[in-house]
Design a protein around this nucleic acid. Sequence first.
DNA 1: TCAATATATCGGAATGTCTCGATATGTCAA
DNA 2: TTGACATATCGAGACATTCCGATATATTGA
Lengths: 103, 103
Amino acid sequence: MASTKKMRMTNLESLGEAAECLRTLAHPHRLRMVQMLLQGEYTVGELAEACDVPSHMASEHLRLMQRCGLLTSEKEGRRRYYRVGEPHLESIMQCIETRFGTK
Amino acid sequence: MASTKKMRMTNLESLGEAAECLRTLAHPHRLRMVQMLLQGEYTVGELAEACDVPSHMASEHLRLMQRCGLLTSEKEGRRRYYRVGEPHLESIMQCIETRFGTK
DNA sequence: TCAATATATCGGAATGTCTCGATATGTCAA
DNA sequence: TTGACATATCGAGACATTCCGATATATTGA
């Protein structure tokens, strides 16, 4: 039988938002971009090159992550610099690194 | 220009596995199940009822999470008890709770 | 102004995910 | 053995995501 002990649960609506963030994060290139951005700011082109994807795709990945609050960006001339906008990303990335390693 | 400072990066293949785990986690009902399972073990039916989904769907959600190592399970009679199998889930869930709240 | 560069947008094909009803399997209690 | 219960599996339809080529916009330097 289900016990009746009280638990502090996050409501389903908020868990839906959380799920959206996680789904957005859940892509190897996007994880790599976040891993880089935790070290400093980078342009679309730099992140694209590091992930070996065309820059128009990097642009799209970054836009998605910005849209759900994971990143922020700022335009400088014809470049756009991205940064981490969600402080929890650091600890989530640490979980991933301790489980899957860095090298 | 991209700086040449060395970063310890997780390789793309491992990030792919990480992405698979995150994608599996990225669902409101699955997050709720994990939130419950961090407090103790529960059967398929209990988790289904708590999420207000038919038990055959809970069964499927749980199977997916077990398949990528997030959960473990054990059969007792006609019931199957699930538990958390990935210790990092606790800190990831804490990130979610501090950002999206509990109530 | 012109060409080169950096980023963004659009449409489409392939693929994956979600949810559901229907049905199957395994287990217990009587 | 039978019926009820708990869990699992299957297939279909709707929907979302990924990736790509093509193209668009915006900025700079010459």
